[in-house]
Design a protein around this nucleic acid. Structure first.
Lengths: 257, 257
DNA sequence: CGGGGCGTTGACTGAGATCAATTATGGTGG
DNA sequence: CCACCATAATTGATCTCAGTCAACGCCCCG
């Protein structure tokens, strides 16, 4: 397959770090083949040594770890455009699993291709690197949520984050977006019980901030939700809309003072 | 300054991803100058746009975020050999702060140098990238600890992790290593109150697992501590001692099957 | 000798986990 | 179209871990 399916990725990377036409073309030909998965199955499992990176084209996945006592921690959610295991071509052994929450389509990029591309196109390397660094920034923010925010704040914060993530790749409409994530999964992501998630959602509904219905989340009061979750999008490192894109293919990148 | 002080870094990177003599030489000349800090001050502050990366030569630092309501989340601890803000040359704006816990010495690597090096030496880029990916893996593990492990497990887990981190750069002796971290700081790292940290430490002491005295941690029962913390070092991605180092400077890297 | 930071301990309180049902919801086959 | 089943959501009652408040001891340092 060639690049028709990687547009979401291009769009996202481009938003992070503008690439030249040649660089975009390289990326579009990087995907060797496509795979489909049912909902609720593993794409990659802890301990695996994958030979490809996965680019999510459709559906929602989560990154998680299972503890010896059966508890689960979900560490991130992913949507179209995410290379959710970019790290696998550098770290070799997976220290966690990736599972689907809905039926999913992914494109495969062989590790060998990743190696070639990142050696020959430092800008692409830096764009993908940047993407993994933003993932890390999101991990840190989640850590902060779980460690120091109340349940109410945590859930509000998660809603804000996923709204912006989905908006970036065009999956939102007004303030409405798909929400296939169950309450138990929210709990496993935020370190709380499914029961408590349920009660907290009721509160958020009661405050008129959100409506969660038919697997879709409606944000009724964006400002209110942001405040409820102490949400500051800085950690997502989205390029502010008013910042001019760096000349594509240019050789330098200077932080604006 | 030239490379005499960057040996710890070289040692660490080398352990992650063997480099050629030329590559090592490049790294040794990357540091432009050195700075010293007192204990309990910020090296980098949230919102900054640093122009250099910091390589920690001596002392202990932490990565943290302050919340609007005054709560603090510590997201990592760092010791000699850590480039604790490698991300800053790609992400530009700091989304968190770095503070010293003890007096510290750091070497500065200008972002411009980082850009040059990572463009011209893809192996170095990959080594530093790998380092940032391991940081991310540690974030994920902390998230798991905070979200799903009991206080007792969390503290045991933290002790195990820092022991191995320090051991890698030669800061341990038998099972003893410096512990300048206060109970309040442990609490801010693990999402618990200083009082509860105190009580949990008492428990760990009572079980004969550790002794914390004179700012030094003594692990009395390594196997017991690992078990108490459900500690599995896989997420640190340390190269197993028996795995032969890749030929330095070689052009490929193939995951052993 | 006095004060500030850190550690320790006790008593009280509360957010959120656990246990136990009950009620949607959606997909399946008859 | 409906009975059936599994999954998810909801609600109530109870319990517990850990946070908060308050006090005190220790030690270092000026």
């Amino acid at each position: 397959m060639s690049g028709t399916h990687s547009n979401t990725l291009i769009r996202k990377l481009h938003a992070l770090f503008p690439l030249s036409a040649e660089e975009v073309a390289v990326l579009e030909h990087a995907c060797s083949r496509m795979r489909e998965f049912a909902g609720d199955v593993d794409i990659v499992t802890e301990g695996d040594r994958p030979s490809d990176c996965n680019l999510l084209l459709q559906g929602i996945t989560c990154r998680y770890k299972l503890l010896p006592d059966g508890k689960r921690q979900i560490m991130s959610f992913h949507c179209a455009g995410d290379i959710f295991d970019a790290q696998s071509f550098i770290l070799e052994v997976m220290d966690h699993s990736i599972g689907t929450l809905t039926p999913c389509k992914v494109a495969l990029i062989p590790h060998r291709t990743m190696l070639d591309i990142t050696e020959r196109y430092p800008h692409i390397a830096r764009a993908v690197w940047k993407d993994t660094l933003i993932d890390a920034a999101i991990f840190r923010e989640w850590m902060t949520s779980i460690g120091r925010r109340s349940s109410y704040q945590r859930i509000a914060h998660l809603f804000c984050e996923l709204y912006l993530k989905m908006k970036t790749v065009g999956l939102t409409e007004d303030h409405i977006f798909p929400w296939p994530i169950t309450q138990t999964e929210i709990g496993d992501a935020l370190g709380m019980s499914n029961i408590h998630v349920n009660r907290t959602l009721k509160e958020l509904r009661g405050e008129g901030l959100i409506v969660l219905k038919d697997r879709r989340l409606i944000i009724k009061d964006w400002e209110g939700l942001k405040e409820a979750g102490q949400f500051d999008p800085a950690y997502l490192h989205l390029r502010p809309a008013d910042e001019p894109a760096r000349a594509a293919g240019g050789g330098e990148r200077i932080a604006p003072q």
